[in-house]
Amino acid sequence: MSMDIPGPDKLADLVSGVTETMFGMSFALAPPRDTSPWNTMPPWRTVLLPIHGRRPITVAIAADEQGGRVLGSRMFSCDAASVDASMIDDSLRELANIVAGQVKSVMGLDQALGLPTVGDPGQRLEMSTWRAATLQSPAERIVVWVAVSETPAT
């Protein structure tokens, strides 16, 4: 039985649950902002992951450069200074992969995960079709974004 797309609180929980388990970093839903991500203030990197099947879903994870660097350093267990762009892309792709697995489970979708792809720098998403959440890690002072849409990834 499939369910609705999770709301911002749940999306925040999902991302935080993943990062907390893997490298002890938690995120919380950020307070509402004047600028919403992807349309007015494009994040530095966006990764899109499709879940194909009867009910196609796309999961997006994005970060600004600082956020991507910190995530990369945690994923690769190294200094933030030694994290390069490919490591950031890789970390965001893996985060999208694991979060997509969680989204699929929460929505009760018996569909296989697709492959994550890195979008163009500064890629904007048409936010009217997405359910999104802005998250911040109080400890690291970084922001990441997560969004889910019922439209196939383009």
Binding site: M1, Q102, S105, V106, G108, D110
Partner: peptide
């Protein structure tokens, strides 16, 4: 009971 159909991995 409703949630038993699938594991909730979250």
């Amino acid at each position: 009971i409703r949630s038993i159909g699938e594991f909730d991995i979250s």
